[in-house]
C-alpha cells in the first residue's frame, strides 16, 4: 500500500489540521471568523479555504496532476497574494503538510506499515507542490500589475483617441 493510500484514510484529520495551520497565520480575532462554519458569503475567505483545501488534498493524494492542482491552489493563493503577507509567509502553509503527514501517520510509522523512506518520498512531493504554488503566486502578482495597467488604459483611451494619438485603432483595449 502506498503512503497516499494511508494518508487518504486520514483525509478529514489532515484537512482540519491544514486548515488550522493556514488560518493561524491571521490575527486571533480573525481566526475565530475564518473558522466559523457560517454561510459561504458571510465568511468568504474561510469557506473558500476550507473547500479548496479539501479539493487540493483529493487531487494531491490521488492523481496529482499539475494542471488540475494549479487552479485549486489558485483559490487559496489568489487571496493570500493580495493580503499583507511576504511571499514566503503567503506560501509557507504548503510545507506544513510535511509535518502534518508525519503526525497523522504516527501509528503507521511505528508499526512499520509506512516506512521512513515513503515519508521522505512524500516530503519531496510536497516540495514539488511548493514549487507549483510558487508559479501560481507569481501568476497572481503579475495579474495584479496587469489589471492596474488595464484600468489606466480604460480610463484614458478616449482622451488619447481625442488627442488623435490612437487613430482608429480598435485593438488598443
Amino acid at each position: 500500500m502506498d503512503i497516499e493510500h494511508h494518508l487518504r484514510n486520514h483525509k478529514e484529520e489532515i484537512s482540519q489540521k491544514w486548515f488550522d495551520l493556514l488560518t493561524c497565520t491571521y490575527p486571533q480575532e480573525s481566526v475565530r471568523l475564518l473558522k466559523k462554519e457560517s454561510n459561504q458569503f458571510a465568511n468568504p475567505v474561510g469557506s473558500t479555504f476550507r473547500t479548496a483545501i479539501s479539493q487540493i488534498l483529493d487531487e494531491f493524494l490521488g492523481e496529482n496532476r499539475a494542471e488540475a492542482l494549479a487552479p485549486l491552489l489558485d483559490k487559496v493563493i489568489r487571496v493570500r497574494a493580495v493580503q499583507s503577507f511576504a511571499p514566503s509567509a503567503a506560501l509557507s502553509f504548503i510545507f506544513g503538510l510535511k509535518t502534518i503527514a508525519a503526525g497523522v501517520l504516527e501509528e503507521e510509522l511505528a508499526e512499520g506499515e509506512v516506512g521512513i523512506d515513503d515519508l521522505r518520498g512524500f516530503e519531496r512531493k510536497v516540495e514539488g507542490l511548493g514549487l507549483l504554488a510558487f508559479d501560481v503566486y507569481t501568476g497572481c502578482r503579475e495579474n495584479l500589475f496587469e489589471i492596474k495597467v488595464a484600468e489606466i488604459k480604460r480610463n484614458t483611451r478616449r482622451l488619447l483617441e481625442r488627442a488623435q494619438i490612437i487613430i482608429g485603432d480598435s485593438d488598443s483595449e
Binding site: C24, Y26, F85
Partner: peptide, 16 residues
C-alpha cells in the same frame, strides 16, 4: 534560512 515551521509564524499581523 528559516524552516517552514518558523515561517508560518512570520506573518505581518502582530499579536499586541
Amino acid at each position: 534560512v528559516p524552516k517552514p515551521s518558523e515561517l508560518k509564524l512570520e506573518h505581518k499581523f502582530p499579536e499586541t
